[in-house]
Design a protein around this nucleic acid. Structure first.
Lengths: 225, 225
DNA sequence: ACCTGAACACCGTTCAAGT
DNA sequence: ACCTGAACACCGTTCAAGT
């Protein structure tokens, strides 16, 4: 019968799928391994063959979240225009869209863990996301849109803003309307924050025609802020 | 005897205290109402007089987190210098310091809740924190350090960056060293992001002498980004 | 290799009853 | 008003045993 083959085939994936669904529908408090097993027509001890404990399942789920987020961000960059501003805007939108569509999952991804060894893989996954911001900033430096300096130090505040905005969106501190209407303010602010001196900053997606000029630094300045 | 009077006096506060301690020492997964009651020498049903269920206790604890964070931010502003940059820097440091010193609590404060009625008080508390950033931005506008425009829309990206940086700090995405060394990059980026056109931006705490000039916008621009 | 069934120690929540 | 004690239904985890 079909269910038999399914579980034989991939109980591990079925557990992750079902866990995410319950997480989405009933929240993290309602997730139990026994109920998961029941739903999948399997004994309550079966999950332990695939995940040593509940936390291991949650960690694995968080990891798939990072992987899907990475795919979403990559897709956003491939679909985006060529200008730095367009690519940054696309990255922000993709991150925030994924976050609000997977709020509980995002919580899981960035939740403080207490066994450092378990967090390693998750932190590495987060660093792969951050690397995309670094890549974007490096491109921006090549095109002259982004200020000079160590590119990781320039990308970090950008990625930080992204993460904070997504966090406020998922936790409800910002309403859906506020998220939608605030996106352009955030993007414009990010552009200004990383802009090369002497570069005109233009951001026109949500609020057409807004722009400003970031000037050259005063002579004699060794390291422009 | 002493313990008897203590519990009679304020079992509710004792539960919150003890819950925070276990949270800090053993993590959120290890928190149980029954153990809490045992530790306090009280029957396992006693907590239900003060919190209708476990989530209610966690929500109450999160609320005290917001209150203490608000106090820390207020204190930072009272201790800070007069310049906008100094006050912003002090706010960022205070937020991040509180976050790393209370990582699990911060998680709890901003965790996605599934009963909207329970979240209301927490969201209101978060808004009180955000109001401090709005106040600071408004002062910055009066002193000419911060660009013109609706002050909430200017403060939101700032507060968002703060929150994201704290989130990376508590979740371990940024190491303690990276947090310490990244603080000035973040602050300088924030200053640039909200600076008034034509204003010289100076930030010299961690990296003395760094500064740049944000110029006047090109003539004819209605709304500088 | 993968799963079952029973067993163990622990939960959260409720409710009559005590003081 | 505040707490107790027993009861209920549910957990996570382990482990010998099955196929």
């Amino acid at each position: 019968m079909q269910t038999r083959r399914y579980h034989h085939g991939d109980l591990r994936a079925a557990l992750l799928d079902r866990a995410e669904q319950t997480l989405r529908e009933k929240g993290p408090g309602a997730l139990s391994l026994r109920e998961l097993a029941r739903d999948l027509g399997v004994s309550h001890a079966a999950p332990s063959r695939h995940f040593k404990d509940k936390q291991a399942l949650l960690d694995a789920l968080a990891l798939t979240g990072f992987e899907r987020m990475e795919a979403a961000l990559t897709a956003s960059q491939e679909a985006a225009g060529e200008s730095f501003a367009e690519r940054l805007g696309a990255l922000v939108r993709a991150y925030v869209d994924f976050a609000v569509a997977n709020a509980v999952l995002l919580d899981l991804m960035y939740t403080v863990k207490h066994e450092p060894e378990a967090s390693e893989a998750l932190i590495a996954a987060a660093h792969r996301l951050a690397a995309m911001a670094v890549e974007l900033a490096a491109d921006g430096q090549r095109s002259g849109d982004v200020r000079e300096g160590p590119v990781e130090r320039i990308a970090m505040p950008l990625f930080t803003t992204l993460h904070g905005f997504a966090g406020f969106a998922t936790s409800g501190v910002l309403s859906a309307d506020e998220v939608a209407s605030g996106l352009d303010d955030v993007i414009a602010y990010m552009l200004r924050g990383c802009a090369a001196d002497g570069r005109e900053v233009t951001w026109s997606e949500g609020a057409p025609g807004l722009h400003c000029l970031v000037p050259r630094p005063p002579r004699g300045t060794s390291h422009p802020v």
